[in-house]
Amino acid sequence: MTADSPNPAVEPDNVQAVVDSPADVDTGSSVGLDPTVDPDPGIDPSSSMWTSRLRRAWMSKLPPDELLPDRQPAYVASWIYVFGVLTLAAFLVILVTGLVLAFAGPAWYHTSSPGLFTNSLHFWSVQLFFVFMVVHLWGKFWMAAWRGRRAMTWITGVVAFLASIGTAFTGYLVQTNFDSQWISFEAKDGLNAVGIGAFFNVANLGQMLLLHACLLPLVVGVIAVWHVLLVRSRGVVPPIDTVDTEFSVTPADGASATEVRP
């Protein structure tokens, strides 16, 4: 069915027209004769169904060629652009090594060589993750990447950064070694002083373990996906004060020449 035939089957008068194209109808079925049944419930651009509305909203906000583009504006030509994807890659390595550690339990790596090696992979992928994320953040700051309705991209990025710090912090608390003993002893005072310690008890291994292995990675993951979808739907921010071919003589932002507004 083509996109310009709006739901013909709901009108009884149109039934014949529909049955005329036999490829659309199961042979031997009475579907085509029942005016209440749409013989081809395929793409209907004007359907009020919730599913259709969701698909239309998705397709208008983020069509496939924006979700997975094979081109970028010519200004996307710097190594600084690879640090976002490096951060995501490190996050994947953290998730995989973390799943192995979670499967075996927190005490495994103290007594097993493969366990210690897995813990080392987890440890170093976290160090890489933060190195890449900080360089990414610096890059986006100096590019003022929040311009052009991209403030939410910046905000989700900062939230992902803060949530990652919380996730790493709980990770240090569930090492079940001297370092976690000391960190929980020292960190409790700061958290207690502002009332957070009443609900978030750094000396409660069970609570910290579940937060670290379950809730917080989920939060970081969901925000990271949101962040990436925003980048894809808004596109990569153009250079500051840029002009493109359409307005090639005037400054882009005469109204905001001294500010870098979102």
Binding site: R71, Q72, P73, A74, Y75, V76, A77, R147, G148, R149, R150, G235, V237, P238, T242, V243, D244, T245, E246, F247, A252, D253
Partner: peptide
């Protein structure tokens, strides 16, 4: 320009 679709060259 930052808030609308890019009309310049691509790579």
């Amino acid at each position: 320009i930052a808030s609308r679709e890019w009309k310049g060259p691509w790579r």
